[in-house]
Design a protein around this nucleic acid. Sequence first.
DNA 1: TTGTACAATGTAAGCGATTACTGAAACCGC
DNA 2: GCGGTTTCAGTAATCGCTTACATTGTACAA
Lengths: 359, 359
Amino acid sequence: MGTLYIFCPFQTFWFMTIKRSHHQRVKIDDVAREAGVSTATVSRVINGTGTVSPTTQQRVHHAIRSLRFVAHGSARGLAGSKTNTIGIVMPALTTFFFAALIKGINESIEEQGYTLLMYSSNSPASMIGGKPLPLGDHNTDGLIVFTDFLDDYSIQYMFEQGLPIVMLHRTAPAGLDIPVVAFHNEKGAFEAVNHLIENGRRRIVFLKGPEGNEDSRQRELGYRRALASADLPVDENLIRRGKFATTPAKQAIETLLQEGAHFDAIFAGDDNAAVGALEACRDMDISVPGQIAIVGFNDDYMARHVSPALSTVSAPIYESGFKAGTTLLKLIAGQPVNNAIRLETKLVVRDSSRRNGHG
Amino acid sequence: MGTLYIFCPFQTFWFMTIKRSHHQRVKIDDVAREAGVSTATVSRVINGTGTVSPTTQQRVHHAIRSLRFVAHGSARGLAGSKTNTIGIVMPALTTFFFAALIKGINESIEEQGYTLLMYSSNSPASMIGGKPLPLGDHNTDGLIVFTDFLDDYSIQYMFEQGLPIVMLHRTAPAGLDIPVVAFHNEKGAFEAVNHLIENGRRRIVFLKGPEGNEDSRQRELGYRRALASADLPVDENLIRRGKFATTPAKQAIETLLQEGAHFDAIFAGDDNAAVGALEACRDMDISVPGQIAIVGFNDDYMARHVSPALSTVSAPIYESGFKAGTTLLKLIAGQPVNNAIRLETKLVVRDSSRRNGHG
DNA sequence: TTGTACAATGTAAGCGATTACTGAAACCGC
DNA sequence: GCGGTTTCAGTAATCGCTTACATTGTACAA
């Protein structure tokens, strides 16, 4: 600001750009003129479409670099009907889960030159009645749906418009041929509960997730199957709602204890809930795993850092995001995809459910 | 699929959309025709620009709803030179910090109809030499910079192009009038270290963040000032790199212990590092806070859930994201903004640094 | 009654790329 | 040397909106 060294190309450049401000930016015509070719040729070089001689390519690349040309996204979007952007609709979570997921998606699409357009909200969106999604077939080339706050009708609408869609941790609306990426929840839960049973636990609490959550529903099925296959009865009173969150889970366990319920293990719907359960026990001076064993789900960051370290069903969160990204890209490219991708989980036994602590 | 009830408008509609597939979608002309007005009027109604009679507005809104019209983002972007999208450049973190931040940004811009275009990467980007950012003045109306992987030169370039920019947890390139949103790191660190000193600690380890990280640098200044103001010497040997991560921090503490270093407290650069320190102590059977007191920074989710519960400098992460969002929007709107927003932190004393545990 | 001001709407020129179409030159085997 | 390909590159239409400008209509003061 202020200083201007006439002979310094960079400073001169700054000066120029300041002068012409936000308009008159360098566009493809400028590049074409600079390289002595037509805009079509520049476009071909940029996109690698059509045939351009090596010499010309060199010239064009040189012009692009020296002018610092970057194509206008909207213009490309309009002309090419391609945005190189995919969208994700998801709940506004603030957990490790969320972060890992996004990272996975991002890295899966990054090298392909795609960008993630994120729409995050906790309020329902719908194409009928409510405000329509700001995402969809205009702004993005594809969509990852990872939320319960979007009704089947809207999904069906976009799907039938031809928008590539991948469901993430949620099943597709009935009858629609939309790929799903999810964990093998039922199996993972079965193994977790089975592990508890094998260690002598008989009365096992299950902490459900939020109302309508699919992961939770499937984990509950696994829980029931494990009990059934060990010929243990299901006590509906031991099934409570932990909402995949620490505080509600803690309260649920406290309530159970106050009610004088009898149980020797807790299978929490996820690790957040498990941590809540852990704290309830700690506050009540109940030994874990001595009196009560606890197993969570997900293998969140903090699972191994709480004390006692939390046994949990390790779920490939990052991979699920990554898989969703690559699947969507394949879909966009018109390649065949596997329609139901279920990722395996793995039981990780730590201190919170070890046998040795048990009486 | 298959069933088609002639008299049901929705089904008929599906049928139609399927037939005409991905092209011939409903565009503004269709709406104009349906409402019996010109496209200009439809555009005015959509954007709330210009004057349109209430009756006409009604008709247009009705047409929009019945045709399920959603404006083509790229077309609007091209024509209006407005994308209603802001970008963020950030490191590919997988922490609670990141998630809360994004949530804050998102919610701050959501009600204004903006969307977040996220570019996340761990590889350097630059306008000179390297691959240019896929974000910037073409694709977004503004940019939040939250990463060290973007050089000052690029930021200066975009800034002088007139792109609204807000720096998040990073200072602006010298001489540029770019707003900064950050924590009061120095002060927060000072208070944390001071707290340790007041509780009788004398030899305090500091675990730095990653190379070049600004938050870390500022926290180190606070650490040094606190020691100085208590007339305590700074032992450079007690300053180690914890990289804002659990494992490196754990190793750093283990190394210190193996070297026979003498210290009675650890001020960790962030909570991840603090957890690592905690584990190193636990593994070595060192009592916390009995022998060594630990204080972290951020007040991450797990801080209160580890054991002993972690004392930490609580930082308003979500608010910082939110503030960055609103500031950027103001900037875009041409409104005056506060150029240096420093958010206050708050020391939260939990078990890991309580006096009673100290000899 | 006429002129002025303003409200309401239409017309049409872009915005900056992509790409279908077309033409010119170079290369091929016979 | 000649029709037939191929390669390389240019022309110009097009994508779906926004908006400057033009136009019409109506109210109101002079």
